[in-house]
Simulated assay, not measured.
Amino acid sequence: MLKSTADQTDGKWQMPEVSQALSESITFMSEDFEVLDLALRVSPELRFAAFILKLARAANIQYPVTSIDDIVTHIPSGRIGAAGHVVTGESLRIFFPREFLPIESQGDLLTKAYLTLLHCQEETNKVTGVDPVILDYIVDFINDLRAGVEH
């Protein structure tokens, strides 16, 4: 059975009660990786939030994180992009809600990264009227055209 390493590595994060009850009744084995991968495809923001946590683990970020700069300094090449989102140090400084600090644990980082991405998607939809995933495809298409890639 796969256990949450968030619970094993930092006991401060607590899953919401309703989710915890459901989570305790559902278990996954290592052979269920493809099922979890497919589930993450349904929610690109959750996949991207998981990627942010993966980067934080690779950088051995220490908790609690009290400043967004503690995360920003570990963004490879200053920019990461996926799931219709592009995250830069500057965008994190602008869009990450200050009330989300401190980040107490890995589970807390995952939750707050996910909520921030959802908020950014909602704001982008309001401003542009276009879903960020579709906007990402349009930008990729334009960049391909500029590079001479035929479609």
Score class of each variant (00 low, 15 high):
Met1Phe: 02
Lys3Asn: 11
Ser4Gln: 07
Thr5Ser: 11
Thr5Pro: 13
Ala6Ser: 12
Ala6Asn: 09
Asp7Cys: 14
Asp7Pro: 03
Gln8Ala: 15
Gln8Val: 13
Gln8Cys: 09
Thr9Leu: 14
Lys12Ala: 15
Met15Thr: 12
Met15Asn: 09
Met15Glu: 14
Pro16Met: 07
Glu17Met: 13
Val18Tyr: 13
Val18Trp: 11
Ser19Arg: 08
Ser19Pro: 03
Ser19His: 11
Gln20Ile: 05
Gln20Trp: 02
Leu22Pro: 00
Ser25Gly: 09
Ser30Asn: 07
Ser30Asp: 14
Ser30Tyr: 10
Ser30Lys: 10
Glu31Arg: 13
Leu36His: 02
Leu36Lys: 09
Ala39Glu: 10
Arg41Met: 07
Arg41Asn: 13
Arg41Tyr: 03
Val42Gly: 11
Glu45Phe: 10
Leu46His: 07
Leu46Ala: 13
Leu46Pro: 05
Phe48Glu: 00
Phe48Trp: 02
Phe48Leu: 15
Ala49Leu: 01
Ala49Val: 01
Ala50Gln: 12
Ala50Lys: 05
Ile52Arg: 02
Leu53Ala: 13
Leu55Pro: 01
Leu55Trp: 00
Ala56Glu: 01
Arg57Pro: 06
Arg57Val: 13
Arg57Thr: 13
Ala58Ser: 12
Ala58Val: 14
Ala58Glu: 13
Ala59Lys: 00
Ile61Arg: 02
Ile61Phe: 02
Gln62Leu: 15
Tyr63Trp: 08
Val65Ala: 01
Val65Trp: 00
Val65Cys: 08
Thr66Cys: 09
Thr66Gln: 08
Asp69Asn: 14
Ile71Lys: 01
Val72Arg: 03
Val72Asn: 01
His74Tyr: 08
His74Ala: 00
Ile75Ser: 05
Pro76Arg: 09
Ser77Val: 10
Gly78Pro: 05
Gly78Gln: 03
Gly84Ile: 01
His85Trp: 07
His85Cys: 01
Val87Arg: 08
Val87Gln: 03
Gly89Thr: 05
Glu90Gln: 14
Glu90Val: 12
Leu92Asn: 04
Arg93Thr: 05
Arg93His: 03
Phe95Asp: 10
Pro97Met: 01
Pro97Val: 02
Arg98Trp: 05
Arg98Cys: 07
Arg98Phe: 07
Arg98Ile: 08
Arg98Gln: 15
Glu99Tyr: 15
Phe100Leu: 04
Pro102Asn: 08
Pro102Arg: 06
Glu104Ile: 12
Ser105Glu: 08
Gln106Ser: 07
Gly107Pro: 05
Asp108Ile: 06
Leu109Cys: 00
Leu109Ala: 02
Leu109Asn: 01
Thr111Asn: 13
Lys112Pro: 06
Tyr114Glu: 00
Leu115Gly: 04
Leu115Arg: 10
Leu117Glu: 02
Leu117Trp: 00
Leu118Asp: 00
His119Val: 03
Gln121Trp: 03
Gln121Val: 02
Glu122His: 14
Glu122Phe: 11
Glu123Asp: 08
Glu123Ile: 10
Thr124Ser: 14
Asn125Thr: 15
Thr128Ala: 05
Gly129Leu: 07
Ile134Ser: 10
Ile134Lys: 03
Ile134Asn: 10
Leu135His: 04
Asp136Val: 09
Asp136Trp: 05
Ile138Asn: 07
Val139Gly: 01
Asp140Ala: 11
Ile142His: 10
Asp144Cys: 12
Asp144Asn: 15
Arg146Phe: 14
Ala147Met: 10
Val149Met: 10
His151Arg: 15
His151Tyr: 14
His151Leu: 07
His151Gln: 12
